[in-house]
């Protein structure tokens, strides 16, 4: 086939999706950043189309927003670590120890909650953490109480919500590791724990990083779970939502929404070197 007609065909095929994404999405993103450097009239609440860095200056100068930004990133990191710790044993068991039949069942058992509604899962934890709820009941023989709605509940709920996104890449990553490596490690005299530490963990690392991209990004952008189980706790998402809705300060919301984007871009640039992006 002539290369010119092939190029033409590619162009024609690409036109509709690119038009859609370009108009509906890229333009919207660009507009968002333009809006973030617009001002707002303090009295009328109307957006003033004048160039100003005030929104970003406010983000930095007003301590509460700085605190919220750091808290959000902190919770995202914590959720990622918790998920990695929970995902590793189950992924290792699925990939390298379970019989094929058990493995299939485990994959389904991990996938099933992924299809259960996000909202229902967050709501389920509202029930778990409520006063007199299941956690209180389970803890009462030991004199323990539910921590109630707050940042602890938010972290637990988010870690629960994103856990499958960590298990699946780690499982896939471990499955690719040939068994002969474990045998070689054993033959060279390493015990099971040494093999895990010196062979399995380094090989699983890119997969963990791949999973962390999901857990990190999803946590940064969440505001529903924190509204449901977070009590009075605020994250970037809740501030952005409040500023689009009730506070009606779209330029400020736009400026704050760029924080997770920048954090994600920095994070992606940092993890590029681990080769995690190829194993996504």
């Amino acid at each position: 086939m002539l290369s010119r007609s092939a190029g033409l065909r590619t162009g024609l095929l690409l036109l509709p999706p690119m038009l859609w994404l370009g108009v509906a999405y890229l333009a919207a993103l660009a507009a968002l950043f333009v809006t973030s450097v617009w001002g707002q009239n303090d009295f009328t609440g109307d957006i003033e189309r004048v160039w100003t860095w005030d929104n970003y200056r406010q983000l930095w100068d007003i301590p509460v927003y700085r605190t919220i930004a750091f808290r959000t990133v902190g919770i995202a990191a914590l959720v990622t670590v918790v998920d990695a710790l929970l995902a590793f044993p189950i992924a290792l068991y699925m990939a390298k120890m379970a019989s094929p039949r058990t493995r299939r069942l485990l994959v389904i058992a991990v996938l099933m909650p992924l299809w259960a509604s996000y909202l229902v899962k967050a709501y389920a934890w509202r029930g778990m953490f409520s006063g007199g709820g299941l956690i209180d009941w389970l803890g009462s023989p030991f004199g323990l109480h539910s921590p109630g709605y707050g940042l602890v509940a938010t972290t637990v709920t988010l870690a629960y919500l994103w856990l499958p996104y960590m298990i699946l890449p780690v499982y896939a990553g471990l499955e690719r590791v040939p068994d002969s490596l474990f045998e070689a490690s054993g033959d060279l005299g390493a015990g099971a724990l040494t093999t895990i530490r010196r062979v399995v963990l380094p090989m699983a690392f890119p997969a963990v990083v791949a999973g962390s991209i999901f857990t990190f990004s999803l946590t940064l952008g969440d505001y529903i779970a924190v509204t449901i189980v977070g009590g009075a706790g605020q994250l970037i998402g809740t501030v952005v939502y409040a500023n689009v809705g009730s506070a009606n300060n779209l330029p400020f919301a736009a400026a704050f929404a760029t924080v997770p984007v920048v954090v994600m871009l920095v994070y992606l640039a940092a993890v590029r070197r681990t080769g995690a992006l190829e194993s996504l």
């Binding site: 999405y25 993103l29 968002l32 952008g221 969440d222 952005v240 939502y241 929404a257 984007v261 994600m264």
Partner: peptide
């Protein structure tokens, strides 16, 4: 993040 897509 979802809020970015949403607000955009």
């Amino acid at each position: 993040p979802g809020i970015v897509t949403g607000i955009a």
